[in-house]
Design a protein around this nucleic acid. Sequence first.
DNA 1: TCTGAGAGCGCC
DNA 2: AAAGGGCGCTCTCAGA
Length: 649
Amino acid sequence: MTLGKTYSYLAAVDIETKSLIPDPNGALIPHLSVITVIGLVAQSGDRKVFRGPEAIDECCEYIKQNNLGVIGQNFKFDLRKIIFDRPDLEQFLMERWVGDTLLQAHNLPDKVVDSFLAQYELKREHENDELPKGYTHRKAGALSLKVLAPYFLGVPPFWEDPTDHDNDEYVLKDCEYTLRLFEYFDKRFKEEFPAAGRFYEECQLPWTKMLLKVEVTGIHVDTDKMSQKEYDAVTDRSEAKLILDGMWATIQQEITRKSEGDLQARYEAMALTAIEKLKDKTKAERTHERYANNYAQARAKLDTSINLASPKQLLEVLSEYRGYDVRDFDGKTSTSKEVLQKLAQEGHEDIKTLLKYRSADKLANSYFPAYKLFLRKDTGTMHTTFNPSGARTGRLSSSKPNMQQVAPVLRDMFTARPGYKLVTKDLAALEPVLIAYYTQDPRLMEIVQSGMSFHCVNTKEVFGLQDVPLEEIKHRHADLRKIAKEFGLSVLYGAGGNRVQKSFLKQGVSRDIAQCKQYVYKLRDTYAGVWQFKEELDSMLQRGDVVYNYMGRPIVFNDPEEVYMKGFNRLIQGSGSDILQAAAYDISQEPGCQVLLLVHDELVVEVPEKRAEELERRVEFHMTKWDLTNDTGTVKLKVEGGIDLCWKK
DNA sequence: TCTGAGAGCGCC
DNA sequence: AAAGGGCGCTCTCAGA
């Protein structure tokens, strides 16, 4: 690890926080939590604990006095909270932050094995039994310090006291293990995986710093618009519910009657059993009365209304009372969207209403409550958390709230601050482009170089439409194109006949499996170079080789069984996502550009209104500057999107 | 009463 | 032999 010669030695720092709201999850959210204690363990052997209102200052003073570089385990979390409390220290801490054990572990090809995790889980359950009622040790993931330290350092498993988060001993142990792990990982990178070490140091760590800045900045929310949208969703939901209640009134009555009957029968049976056991048979009448009374009470509490959120109840209504075929494309009964859409297409009005209810309910229940919880009311900004180790591919994940799953209809409530505009750009057809680059397949190279439509070409090839000009496919064979689009990329990643059959069924067309397999072979044949590349890659990964993606991120599989389905996909998806992260990093270095969101292949960047067009070109440049030249030619990255006052798709 | 798995669904 | 992949969130339901 290069200390940059600037710092004398290292110290691991860890903070403990507690929630300011009843929900303990508040401890994870900067504006809903408070720091209880800061621990620091330095390579010098010094162990420090800082508390109280001066804790941050004293800690930083110690770091400065001793000229320390600072590391942590998922240190982005700690820094985000510290910077929230003390924005003036952002620059100082950002510079001092020189390492992270979570990011090291994420990129070390040697992973914690599943059997160790399972063993650890057993120990945790055992420990939980010893705890006072209501307290548990939270499940620890493969990248948590609680797993990493015992696995790689061989220290005994350790748990904090969940009744006392504000504990010197624990926070110091945390720091000590972090420091030891850091040195251990550093050594292993140097000795065994120098390329992975470089990726960690030159990409993963700087990118994570960029993400911290993105999180701290947040994205501005038009709260009036948000309220309006929530009101609309709630209204839509109750309207749909009302209509559905009307349509299903008789079913509701039948269900109520049936439940009452069942309940009554149960209580009568209980009464009979009780009476049989009676020694004094003269009390039979009174016993009977008592059970009748109990039944009346239970009846009053009985809720027989149909719970639309219960797949079990809904399934009963749809299949038994309405007589619908509720089998999905795998033949299993289900109330999933694909089943409901098929029924809606057959013209069932109740199902159309149910679908409306479902989507409004999703907005009202999943989106808005989270947005209201995580909105900073003083600034009107939303601050997601990006998890650099959230996905095995190297993609980011986003949570609290998840800004990578914002429904398109909700996007325009996220806006530029006054005086600014948003540049929203996505990398067009990123995956076909990267597949062409990697596999050198001549047909795919030709397609992405010439700008032909991947899906239209597939439609022609698969369905034997040689006579139809490419540009007419979209209009003359829209239905077939839709199906081909459904399974085109999937087949290149390893999908088979079943998957293709499903794509047909979704469009209301049934094809036998043999025919579907023919389509798969046809596509593999069309892109023979892709399939050949995939097979070579698979055999390397199955041997346990470490493969590096476009940006140098290591790819390795412990389980060879997983390779067929995940290997090629991980190379392509991970490369795409890393290109976007690298672009976001470079854009964040452009004066005037503030990256607000990363959504896998899309960036949202805030720029001063007056320089919008100029900076839009800078954003485009950084997103498309990556060299995709292979032995057969060069493919170019393209972006789509523009400038607006709000986030638009 | 609490937890964890599964269903379902939003996004790429 | 056959197999698209990657997430987070909310709800229900069953088991402890």
